[in-house]
């Protein structure tokens, strides 16, 4: 390990660091502005440098960090309360009672309860972490603020069968985890003004991805179709990527929700490059593999549209 000093580093260490990463990205095929390309074509470091520096600093005004962590707290409370109800450890006796049947079914699957408990523990820790670091529960959410049937308070939403059917429950859990992954990914750029919060969010983001992977493996081992990969990755997009074939006659509302949860996950354009057509890919690595290799972000509005039915109160 050595600390190499460069001319660019002498100018401005941070800018030098940015330039290195951008140059590498461009060498990997990312699109460069025409002025950058011209500078590189001319092998003119100063020209390329100036153009890159301008690109790097050309950022839009981020949403406030406070708003993002408040929103993250809403999602984490939702996840925590969901798993708490499933495991029967919610502070709401009504929520515990609702999942009694499926809880018994889960207890019959080796390892299922241990996995769900580990996930619930993490979601509770995420709530505690965000709260300890300034996130505000602006909606005063409690265990009773949720309608886990996805009926926005009716108690008869399209996911009602998740309280009695284990495959349906695990499908909901998978959707919740993947939504969490996509939500954090979408908000990361809005946290760049606070690198400590950004890094903490990234560390929560990857935990959600580990959860999603485990849920997929649990589903595959209990009858879910092959699109639910043992590798834990998302293959394709829309409801097809959910792998709901082991749910008999899923309600139309559930199909609609799954289409929202996995919207755009079939994207293959990364950094301006179609990664399904990269040279020297192993045989058989086509579009499906390309979609599995990258997870996609969701906007806050997309996330709200997905999770609103699970809240009795309006969120935004």
């Amino acid at each position: 390990m050595d600390n190499t000093t460069t001319i660019l580093g002498d100018v401005d260490p941070e800018v030098g660091q940015r330039l290195v990463s951008r140059r590498e990205a461009i060498m990997r095929g990312a699109t460069a502005g025409s002025s950058v390309a011209l500078g590189l074509a001319m092998a003119s470091a100063p020209v390329a440098f100036a153009a890159l520096a301008r690109d790097a600093f050309g950022q839009s005004t981020p949403a406030t960090v406070q708003s993002v962590i408040d929103f993250a707290l809403v999602l984490e409370i939702f996840e925590k309360e969901f798993y708490s109800a499933v495991l029967g450890v919610s502070s709401s006796s009504a929520q515990n009672a609702a999942f009694a049947t499926v809880r018994t079914a889960a207890a019959a699957v080796p390892g299922a309860v241990a996995a769900l408990q580990q996930i619930q523990k993490h979601e509770a820790e995420h709530v505690a972490f965000l709260t300890a670091n300034g996130a505000k529960n602006t909606l005063n959410l409690t265990a009773d603020s949720f309608d886990f049937t996805g009926g926005q308070g009716s108690g008869t939403g399209p996911f009602a069968r998740a309280t009695t059917e284990l495959p349906f429950l695990l499908l909901v859990a998978q959707g919740a985890e993947d939504t969490g992954v996509r939500a954090y990914k979408g908000q990361a750029p809005n946290l760049q003004s606070n690198t400590v919060v950004l890094e903490a969010a990234l560390r929560i983001h990857s935990v959600e991805a580990r959860h999603a992977s485990k849920i997929r493996r649990m589903r595959r081992m209990t009858g879910a179709p092959a699109v639910v990969k043992y590798s834990g990755t998302i293959s394709g997009g829309g409801v097809a990527a959910a792998g709901a074939d082991n749910i008999s006659s899923p309600p139309a509302g559930a199909v609609t929700a799954l289409n929202l949860i996995y919207a755009g996950e079939d994207n293959v354009m990364q950094g301006g490059v179609d990664v399904s057509k990269l040279p020297n890919l192993p045989s058989g690595a086509g579009t499906a593999a390309a979609t599995e290799a990258f997870d996609e972000p969701l906007t806050r509005a997309q996330v709200v549209a997905i999770v609103q039915p699970f809240f009795k109160v309006a969120i935004s």
């Binding site: 990361a188 991805a209 999603a212 992977s213 599995e292």
Partner: peptide, 17 residues
């Protein structure tokens, strides 16, 4: 940052698997 985020969550899925 977003591109890195698209990759790290897949790495985390692999790690978990």
């Amino acid at each position: 940052l977003t591109l890195a985020g698209k990759i790290v969550s897949v790495e985390a899925r692999h790690a978990a698997a």
